[in-house]
Design a binder for these strands. Structure first.
Lengths: 375, 375
DNA sequence: GGATCACGTGAATCTGAGG
DNA sequence: TCCTCAGATTCACGTGATC
């Protein structure tokens, strides 16, 4: 097995003992190569498996005029069966090396993606989303017999229903001009200077994916320092973007031509690091401040009156940090829920306090404490 | 079996002896009902089968209102095996009644579409395209745990590789401003007055499809006078659009409530009244370019410094498209507002980037991406 | 009467830390 | 592993009331 070592490790050494396969391309068959990795060792997988476009040839028989539906069915079963076996094998290998909360992204077209998706489900993977990559510049349908095939499908799956994968929701929302990122991604094809060409000017790989696609996948489901596996490495788009974004990679590839192109490509990239890689964090990342802290710190006195935003509900703050509203007592959340007759409530944003002439949510006080803590 | 006869036949009599089932809704199980149709008797099929959604508990919006989920009994299956068996059964029944060159459209989501697609292939169907219906107004992801599920997938398949289905290429191209119709269709959900409501104002069917979707399907793959089958008729969108466009329909439906609603709906339509209408187009607004696109496309590197026009304020671009300026972080718009102490700001014109000796607003970069997309 | 705003709602596999 | 409970979380668009 040939192994590529890029300069990555010297730039960003793994904190502990760095495994030999990190930031390398393993040459060989996908299943055989993955067997050399420890189980539960990667944080994310991006897979661009063969689409099996030649499948059509298998279906075409020379004496097709005599083929009846039953024989036709048999032919297809045979060749789909082979693709399914291949798919099950690599998915099982990938599954073994995935950490329990790792994310798997698989891209494909209508030729193969339905089989991949069904097998994923059969193997116990849990689908989080399917995503459509809409190509702004697809190849037209020359014969005018179908719709222009203008998209590919990406399946985001995890190992089980209970997995808690990385999902940088706030980062993606900020990325998308403060709107939730949707399941449709409008991105151009890989063309121009990004497309790797050989000495003859021919494209090195027939289906090189654009870096923008990997950028979005890695931003969504990985963190700096994570290990990203690509079992069909090709010309190394996954590795290139991983290195740019400060992630480690490991690739598997059978063709030496692709390995050579990918190696040169990745070596020319600088490992990303620094403040530029920090991502927007949500409220959950902030330290938890119990409501009692507002009393301890003197920001609120026992006996203070809180109101709902519309002023309809009143509550008194008691010395232990509980509220009393009529016959209801309990935490800010519980009392907020009870006065509204609901099952849950975010007391921080529901209850308001009068400060001077203005009324503001007690969440503002929490923010003041948090900024004090940071200082 | 209850049979609905609409007024269609009197308006557009079938040339030969018109079968009793034409322009009717057959009540009952899909397979049993289809057994009563002659083989090779329909020109097109549109199928909207149960999606096999697997919902956890209740889901509430941030304002505490409860999402009215699709939890109907007909959408519940015990296992993937059960769903697969159901799918194989109805697809085989449909296959028998399809003419050799008939088109089959099946719509689904990631819960079921991969299984449907794989089974289609296993049964010998030939996939022509997969089409994505991009919803302009999907339900958001309220908990921020996934991408907004903003699309559904439609598979267009025929009975065999050799089938020559109807495809009204030129009509579609004309509809699409002289561009080939692509595999991504941007259409809004079925809402407003089009959505059927009962006396309580509740929706009659949880998953009524928009007529615009059927309009496009029927225009693409059928001709006036053709017979269109919908084995999961629901509230009859397929029948309604078929009648408007001068196609005959035949539907199968188990629930009397849906049959009643569909009957009334279709009877109110005049045969062929919509045939001269121009097809509903998706909005072709200028594509929205989120700031993150500038990073994925490599136009801006993480760590780049942006300034306000007067140079007073600086900010660092981070990999996720967020800015960091002092202790402020967020989108270009939010940070622009914060550094100025204002409530809102157009980050595109506020922030500037140095390119060579010149400093220009980042909006210039956005324009470059737009022109690239147009090219 | 036109503009504005509050409100409702859509095929959804929708929490997680701590005890 | 289970239970408890703090507390985080939404976009587009149509309708109808109000100004």
């Amino acid at each position: 097995m040939r192994v590529l070592r890029t300069g990555v490790s010297s730039v960003a050494p793994h904190p502990h003992s760095e495994p030999a396969w990190l930031d390398t391309i393993m040459k060989g068959d996908c299943v055989a190569a993955l067997n050399k990795l420890p189980s539960k060792s990667v944080d994310m997988v991006f897979a661009d498996p063969p689409y099996n476009l030649q499948l059509g040839g298998d279906l075409h028989r020379p004496d097709q005029s005599k083929v009846d539906a039953c024989d036709d069915h048999w032919d297809q079963f045979e060749s789909f069966e082979a693709y399914d076996a291949f798919t099950r094998a690599w998915l099982l290998s990938v599954r073994r090396v995935m950490k329990d909360d790792a994310s798997l992204y698989v891209i494909g077209s209508y030729h193969n993606i339905f089989r991949v998706g069904a097998i994923l489900q059969d193997l116990g993977f849990w689908i989080m989303n399917d995503i459509v990559w809409l190509k702004s510049n697809p190849m037209p349908n020359f014969r005018g017999k179908r719709f222009t095939n203008a998209h590919e499908t990406i399946i985001w799956a995890v190992k089980s229903k209970d997995a808690k994968p990385t999902f940088n929701y706030d980062a993606l929302k900020t990325f998308n001009d403060d709107l939730q990122m949707r399941s449709d991604w409008h991105l151009p094809l890989c063309t121009g200077s990004e497309r790797l060409k050989d000495d003859n000017g021919d494209k090195v790989h027939p289906t090189q994916k654009p870096e923008s696609l990997l950028y979005r996948v890695l931003t969504a489901s990985s963190n700096p320092g994570d290990v990203v596996l690509d079992p069909f490495f090709g010309t190394g788009t996954t590795g290139a973007v991983a290195k740019k974004l400060g992630r480690h990679f490991v690739g598997v590839e059978r063709e030496q031509t692709y390995i050579d192109a990918a190696t040169a490509r990745i070596e020319a990239i600088e490992f990303g690091q620094g403040a530029g890689l920090e991502m927007q964090k949500g409220k959950r990342a902030e330290p938890r401040i119990p409501f009692g802290n507002l009393l301890e710190s003197g920001m609120i006195e026992p006996g203070t009156e809180l109101t709902s935003a519309n002023g309809k509900h009143l509550a008194i703050v008691r010395a232990d940090g509980s509220l009393k509203s009529g016959s209801f007592t309990g935490s800010i959340h519980k009392v907020g829920a009870m006065v509204q007759g609901q099952t849950s409530c975010n007391g921080w944003t529901y209850w308001h306090i009068k400060r001077g002439r203005k009324t503001s949510p007690i969440d503002d006080l929490r923010q003041e404490i948090r900024s004090r803590l940071r200082a």
